[in-house]
């Protein structure tokens, strides 16, 4: 198992796209803190900011994009054609001949991904929150360790969700389109929430409750409940993905 995890780490970090994901993920959030600093100072002065402790965490939520790319690429790289000469050939053939036990393979793949993304989340959270402190000083109170842990857990869970959806779709473009559109342009989950308050428990809406206090929702979900609900969602997607992967011909 250790060998398989090591191989998956080597494989993931060897991909140029994954390296972009690692760098983007680490840079976006601290960059936003710096770029948004003047506007944020104004809204702090106006008192329109909302809960000031959310500040660094909101930027973290956007930096998530890098982690998302890692989750998608970890799987989609297995399914992309290896060359124009043999359009049907994919890396997955090499992967499964090296590690034919599929559940062991998926476990190793997910573990390697979690290790990378957790490290990325930790570094990014530390950098972003420290920078927020430096830029805004006393206007923003220091965040509690539990909230930081919640934010990192959210990174990891969203990445695993992207991993599972890509495995189900066997295609990275679909996952990236759905997840990026949903998180930036139109949030389908948020629109659904307008129809039924139950939509507040959809994975992308419930997750941020772990670390953001002033959500634009009337429903308030305690952080631990939010963490449990999101973990259950991700576990369900992973189980479905693993079941399909185990049954399917490659």
């Amino acid at each position: 198992m250790v060998l398989t995890i090591r191989a998956e780490l080597r494989k993931l970090l060897g991909l140029p796209t994954a390296r972009v994901g690692v760098i983007l993920g680490v840079l976006i959030a601290p960059l936003l803190v710096t770029v948004n600093a003047p506007a944020t100072r104004e809204s702090i002065a106006d008192g329109t900011l909302g809960d000031p402790t959310d500040l660094g965490f909101r930027n973290l939520g956007i930096g998530l994009l890098g982690a998302l790319i890692l989750g998608v690429v970890s799987v989609s790289s297995e399914y992309t054609s290896t060359g124009d000469d043999s359009p049907g050939a994919r890396q997955l053939t090499a992967t499964l001949t090296a590690v034919p036990h599929r559940i062991r393979l998926l476990t190793a793949k997910a573990t390697a991904l979690v290790l990378v993304v957790a490290a990325q989340g930790l570094i990014t959270a530390a950098a972003t929150l420290a920078l927020t402190e430096v830029v805004h000083g006393d206007a923003v109170p220091a965040p509690s360790a539990a909230r930081v842990a919640g934010a990192i857990l959210y990174w990891v869970l969203i990445t695993l969700l992207a991993f599972a959806i890509t495995l189900i779709a066997r295609n990275g473009v679909i996952t990236l389109t759905v997840l990026i559109l949903n998180s930036s342009v139109v949030s389908v989950s948020y629109l659904l929430y307008k129809v039924t308050p139950l939509a507040a428990y959809l994975p992308d809406i419930v997750g941020p409750h772990m670390f953001i206090r002033s959500m634009d929702l009337s429903v308030r979900i305690p952080p631990v409940t939010a963490g449990l609900v999101m973990t259950a969602w991700v576990a369900a997607f992973l189980i479905l993905a693993a079941w399909l992967f185990q049954r399917r011909d490659t």
């Binding site: 191989a7 080597r10 060897g14 790289s77 290896t82 000469d85 049907g88 050939a89 090499a94 001949t97």
Partner: peptide
């Protein structure tokens, strides 16, 4: 069919993870 190597990976990097 094919090499089994992701097209962005070098030959050596591919063989090393395998």
């Amino acid at each position: 069919d094919g090499s089994g190597a992701h097209r962005a990976r070098s030959a050596r990097a591919h063989l090393r993870w395998v």
